[in-house]
């Protein structure tokens, strides 16, 4: 056997092991979401006795009045969708201006954005809650326990990475394109929406997917801004309702996790062509 074949075989083996490690949590969630509570405790990695239990669990979650799963899905979807659109559009606009306006202030603002990448969320989370409370006291605009408060916070936390990625991409777009559009009769907003934004599509999708996974699954920020057990809550907060101090309903937790993961998985499958394109764009000529 040639050396190449051995290397190839080893690489295949490593890939399979990595695949199994990655897929294992999904597998555990899947098999346990089709079990009753006792069945999970008895044998958490056995296949379920009957798969139909999955639908029973789904129905229990969906109809539980204290969990309000349907409304949680709605709020999660609204918060995620608006956050994604606003993060991507505002960051692309900011990055475009920062790239095209070559001045010292542009560099400083860009560096401030970058510094946002290295400041841990935990450092700013309590000041953020205080800030939101102050905003309410000063302006009367309610930021805590509201959807727009959540979206506003996500724009702030999502913008640094998005601006960084857009900035790098926009630098590679020839300025002549914008000049050609100007001669063709475009205004500045038209140049952005008709020329720049369509060219940014691959990176736009990449940023949206990365943020979608984070925002959809996020627990800590919603728990601080929305609070647990309030009217407005996201799916991760709703799932927490199944984990009490004394009793944890693992069957329902697993099913709820599966239900929550489903839209993200679908979204990833649809957008994976673009995410890969976005990731590798610029790496080859």
């Amino acid at each position: 056997m040639g050396r190449k074949k051995i290397v190839k075989g080893l690489l295949t083996l490593v890939t399979i092991v990595l695949f199994l490690l990655t897929i294992f949590p999904f597998f555990v969630v899947l098999i346990n979401s089709a079990k009753a509570s006792l069945e999970i405790i008895t044998d958490p990695i056995a296949f379920p006795a009957k798969w139909s239990q999955l639908f029973t669990n789904i129905k229990t979650i969906w109809t539980n009045p204290s969990v309000k799963y349907a409304s949680s899905v709605y709020y999660s979807a609204i918060i995620t969708a608006f956050s994604l659109i606003l993060i991507a559009v505002t960051s692309a606009m900011a990055a475009w201006v920062l790239v095209r306006r070559k001045s010292r202030s542009s560099t400083i603002i860009f560096l401030i954005f970058i510094s946002g990448l290295i400041i841990p969320f935990q450092v700013v989370m309590f000041p953020l809650v205080s800030l939101f409370r102050n905003i309410y006291e000063v302006t009367g605009i309610r930021m805590l326990r509201t959807v727009h408060g959540m979206i506003f916070a996500y724009i702030g936390f999502g913008a640094p990475l998005a601006v960084f990625m857009f900035h790098g991409f926009i630098k590679s777009i020839p300025f002549e394109l914008e000049e050609a559009a100007l001669i063709d009769g475009c205004s500045k907003p038209q140049i952005f929406f008709k020329i720049i934004l369509p060219i940014l599509k691959p990176i736009f999708v990449t940023i949206s997917i990365l943020n979608a996974i984070w925002i959809w699954n996020d627990f800590l920020l919603p728990s601080l801004i929305l609070g647990v057990g309030q009217e407005v809550q996201t799916i991760p907060l709703a799932i927490r309702a199944f984990a009490g101090s004394f009793v944890k309903q693992w069957d329902l937790i697993m099913t709820a996790v599966l239900m929550a993961a489903f839209p993200i998985i679908i979204g990833f499958i649809i957008g994976q062509k673009h995410i890969i394109k976005g990731m590798v764009s610029g790496s080859i000529k």
Binding site: P174, L177, E179, A180, I183, I195, P198, K201
Partner: peptide, 20 residues
């Protein structure tokens, strides 16, 4: 006068065609 109102057309060195 802004470029669009000068009734001119320009061909750029790198053509500047809209890629999308």
């Amino acid at each position: 006068v802004s470029p669009k109102d000068r009734n001119i057309a320009m061909v750029f060195q790198n053509y500047a065609l809209y890629p999308h």
